[in-house]
Nucleic acid binder design. Structure first.
Lengths: 147, 147
DNA sequence: TATTGTTATACTCTATAACTATA
DNA sequence: TATAGTTATAGAGTATAACAATA
């Protein structure tokens, strides 16, 4: 812990502000971040087990059962029995769910694009240049807490 | 949406992953992000009105009343009457609340520092270099949604 | 026995509407 | 009337414990 200024201390307030900003993007009409994660997973890679979705989002299995229940009531997903394992069910996204994902991601991206236009070119370059590094930082965080 | 790759689309998944990582830092013992924001505000700049805290965190006034109530029960803040306006109250942080802020921020920063050690030097430099730009991006987001 | 999923229950967090008290 | 705050009520979201069904 010795030697110079802490990078974490510098990064922390910036991340906190970004989180606050992103959180306010989640309007009452938009899906929660966990719901969006699940819907993206289902849209991108097809049907999945409840257990797998719970593991993916670090939620409990009952919690995921309930989230799937809410999303099913909202017609965003449907449950089908797993043909290979009578104990399990497969959750699959509906057309409405896929449309919501697409709409939400477009909205977020558009908002971010608009913000980018407010920045100086040097700032834009700095962020774009740091994207792979930030991704690796976040991945390191995932891995650390998983192990 | 013409003209090349959208920066927002590139930034979005990275931010989503960072948010997921930060969210899992919020253990059951740590304060929620809104509570932490409030406690930081009170620690840094002194007592504040409920309305001001609600505005700061974009919460509703009743929601902030309830959060202050929970934090008061946990001895993190206390309410005192506003001497200048009989309708209002001032919320001030207790020693215990200030200690919690300090402990939480240290924990977060330490965790981030540990993750930084997993990165290549080039990645660290890229992130450090992008910090001011990211901060301006987040500030632009705050301002945009406020207006 | 182990695994998959659900139900039961409880708690945190947040919101809107209605209310009280002060200005 | 307008403002500051609270209370009442409801709902989303999440967790642990106990349960049923299948493997």
């Amino acid at each position: 812990m010795a030697g110079g200024e802490s990078r974490g201390s510098q990064l922390l307030p910036v991340l906190a502000q970004l989180v606050r900003f992103l959180r306010q993007l989640e309007g009452p009409d938009n899906p929660s971040s966990v719901a969006l994660s699940v819907l993206r997973r289902l849209s991108d890679d097809g049907p999945a087990r409840v257990t797998e979705l719970a593991r993916l989002t670090r939620a409990s299995q009952p919690g995921m059962t309930q989230l799937v229940g809410r999303m099913e009531k909202a017609a965003l997903v449907r449950r089908v029995p797993d043909p290979n394992d009578g104990r399990g069910v497969l959750v699959e996204v509906t057309g409405e769910g896929a449309a919501l994902v697409s709409r939400t991601l477009t909205h977020y991206a558009t908002t971010l694009d608009r913000l980018f236009e407010h920045l100086e070119p040097a700032d834009r370059d700095a962020i774009v240049h740091a994207l792979p590094a930030l991704e690796r930082l976040a991945q390191a965080g995932q891995k650390e807490s998983a192990g």
